[in-house]
Amino acid sequence: MVEAIRRRAAVFLWGVRAYGFIAGMWVRSTLAYRTSFLIMATGNLLTTFLDFVGIMIMFSHVETLGGFTLAEVAFLYGTSSTAFGLADLFLGTFDRIGTRIRDGTLDTLLVRPVPVLAQVAADRFALRRLGRVAQGGAVLVWSLLRLDIEWTAGRVLLTAAMLVSGGVIFGCVFVLGGAFQFWAQDASEVQNAFTYGGTTLLQYPPTLFARELVRGVVFVVPLAFVNWLPALRVLGREDPLGLPGWVDLASPAVALVCCALAGLAWRRGLRAYRSTGS
């Protein structure tokens, strides 16, 4: 038992290291074309930045949105966007797994001594995706300066934990979507609805949406744990579903459960591939 756990841990650490050097190689190769990288990164930053400008324009016509002020919405936007940006940076090319399954190039990954998950995740690692993290971070910092909140240690910790667990939850959705493609090979659009669609949803206050939708986001796809529930606690607001207070602090636990599920789905998918081929 202990031996099995130790072996699993060793494989995990080796996977992380392998991710590091594969991603590093991609970074070096993109930096070889520095101008092209700078143009891409700036473009990326600009488009995501314009996204938030839209919300600011909206607020020039209204005082509050679903009872939330601009600074509060910016807080939601910043946390969701940063968490999503982190997941997108590390796992954003994961949906290419579908192509790899279809054209059989997954086979070439299976004959190398590196976990397939790490190889797929690190493939075409693109530093320009940092643009989204930077933009999310900027909006978040701006909102923190504007928010009239007393920053106790608890609130700071909760915000930090929210960003990390949020990134992990989004990452798990990427992996789950990828794993699902072992059975349904065009599932990447469904997964995009949860990731790209999810982050847009989470940028707005939950009070804006129908209760059924909010309930779905809490219980079916645990996206509400990315920022809604913990952010409401930070902002000192009631959640529209009236859930017990400890739920606001459950994000890290939810993230861990997501990891276990995503890991399980991935192993099953890979096993299905290895017994059916394609």
């Binding site: 594969i22 190689m25 190769s29 070439t108 001594p113």
Partner: peptide
């Protein structure tokens, strides 16, 4: 074992050949 799939490359399409080999070196330690 070493495997060469005739139709598909195990190399990284967008990387210079030398970088592909460097990655191989690290993967196989």
């Amino acid at each position: 074992i070493g495997v060469v799939f005739g139709q598909r490359t195990t190399l990284w399409w967008d990387l210079p050949l030398r970088d592909s080999y460097r990655l191989m070196r690290r993967m196989y330690r």
